[in-house]
Design a protein around this nucleic acid. Structure first.
Lengths: 316, 316
DNA sequence: GCCGCGCGTGCGCATATGAGCAAACCGCCG
DNA sequence: CGGCGGTTTGCTCATATGCGCACGCGCGGC
């Protein structure tokens, strides 16, 4: 290439420098003498080029994370941790986030001894991505009901059991429907020794792991027959953005329908709010609202999500 | 973030390292102790990540160049220099490349004292992008005919004159049509003192600058009335991919129709082939074929083009 | 079972790089 | 014309980084 260059205005020089440095990997010194400027100026131009976005450094890998977003999420919502993965194609998204959640769980120290989990599509994916041996002797406890009435009967149970299995431990199932017809029934079941015991155990878990559902007719609670489509529409009308462990909340994180909540069996949100480690896994545009409600109301201490959701959460 | 991590296979660790280094800009040392590996390994992982393409460093700027492609073009075609600019939107493309050509001309050392140029849309753009004072006392000479018959009469002349003007020098115009009807006429004009003088001057230029046209009905030679659409179609049928200073060549760089060439007035290709500096400016997918013919047959020593054309040239 | 070979690893050292600071420079106003 | 804040520049020095070498470990041939 030529030697001396004519005076270049603004970013142009920075571009030239950046090209020589990154594309051609010359040293700052070489570039300096080549362009007739001091190497310090070269360094400064490089710095400028980087934070003016002229030079973009991107990490392209399906398992890559977005550390900047993670940091901002932690600060903004007072989380202890956040895992943000790049937005993949829409159908890959859930898988990517689930894998990230599995990775996080695996890397979690101290290794959880007791883990309270919800159930659902997302959780099932997380378990699928979990490698055998992720823990040793873990007790996996269900934190909300739903064992029997589920149409795809047993998925909830399978999730917990597989998870315990891969962690060389045992699963404790909550033998109860998620939502009862009458409050009295709910209270009755709740006070049954077997159930009470499980709930007590669940409450004492050192780590919680859960996802959330959206408040529309696609909700698993509708699909499972616990609620009718109309019920959910009505809930949405009253401000519900989604459900966490079976309980519907509005944008502020408050339970929308106390009378429904009275009939919902499982850990209350106060337990999650006061937990040391509550890991919330969420992916996809449909869940932006419920995700916001969860993090904003302190229902989790850790969020695992995708880039787009993270961005959405930070704009508000 | 957590401390110790579980053993990670393959690129995963590299990704982690790259994130911490580039996103979080920690030092390699810090990353080392954080992940429980030596800083040298961190360095090596970083190197791996870079050349495995996990880390992509991109320079985003309209005036940025593609140095890698430039180097490969030089090697592949034995050029002394190549300028490749990022492919912008299609309508911006010509402007970007022209600006790059202007920049190149400006930075060229030694400053050209005599410059032979062709004319056309591209050349006009180059001149437009040229800053006043780009040279001092330059002599700009036209190397092919076309002064008078041009429908947009005068553009060819304007190009040369403006260029000379901005370079504080003088323009020498070739007062002749590009293509004559009969060979004898061409020879007669050629031997006219005025014309012969200009051609001699043109031939002695230290630097040449030209573009090329495609062999279809959009050719400037058709537009200018020198050729009919049928003529060009016939030329194309006989293998012509485009024209350089009015002379049509095939993929091998050879003149397609000697009898037409006999009637074409202007510098012969042998002059360009033996020139020290022949700068070829070309942009856009339509000109890929002619561009290939030019560089492959040694018609230029320097090419100024866009990324896509460069890539296309290198695949073959 | 033994030896050699090659890859991956730790490390010393030369060198490249970034932080911080004082001098110089510039545009602005009195 | 001269003083003055703010910005830019060159520089020193501590530190981060890359290169080359020697060592060790594991695998395959004999």
């Amino acid at each position: 290439m030529m030697t001396a260059e004519r005076e270049l205005t603004g970013d142009l020089l920075a571009v030239r420098v950046a090209e020589l440095y990154y594309d051609d990997n010359k040293t700052q010194d070489e570039i300096g003498s080549l362009l007739g400027i001091t190497r310090w100026k070269v360094g400064r131009l490089l710095a400028h080029a980087r934070d003016a976005g002229i030079v973009r450094i991107e990490i392209v890998h399906p398992r890559a994370r977005r550390l900047g977003l993670e940091r901002r999420l932690c600060e903004r919502f007072g989380l202890t941790n956040a895992i943000v993965v790049p937005a993949a194609s829409d159908d890959e998204l859930g898988a990517t986030v689930s894998r990230a959640a599995a990775d996080y769980l695996t890397a979690l120290r101290p290794v959880p001894r007791s883990l309270g989990i919800s159930w659902g599509r997302t959780l099932q994916d997380v378990v699928g991505a979990l490698a055998p041996g992720w823990a040793t002797g873990v007790t996996v406890t269900q934190i909300n009901g739903g064992v029997t009435l589920n149409r795809r009967a047993g998925t909830a149970a399978t999730t917990a059991v597989t998870m315990a299995d891969k962690g060389a431990g045992r699963a404790v199932l909550l033998p109860s429907p998620a939502i009862l017809e009458r409050p009295e029934t709910k209270r009755a079941i709740e006070s049954d020794r077997t159930v009470a015991e499980v709930l007590r155990l669940a409450e004492g878990s050192s780590v919680f792991l859960y996802s959330a559902g959206v408040a529309d007719e696609s909700s698993v609670l509708v699909e499972s027959g616990y609620l009718s489509a109309d019920d959910v529409t009505e809930l949405a009308r009253r401000g519900a953005v989604g459900d966490v462990v079976g309980r519907f909340i509005n944008a502020n994180g408050n339970v929308v329908d106390p009378s429904l909540d009275e009939r919902t069996l499982g850990l209350g949100h106060h337990v999650l709010r006061s937990a040391d480690t509550a890991i919330f896994v969420v992916a996809g545009a449909a869940k932006h609202d419920i995700a916001r409600a969860v993090v904003a109301s302190g229902l989790c201490t850790v969020i695992v999500t995708d880039e787009e959701t993270a961005l959405e959460l930070l704009e508000g």
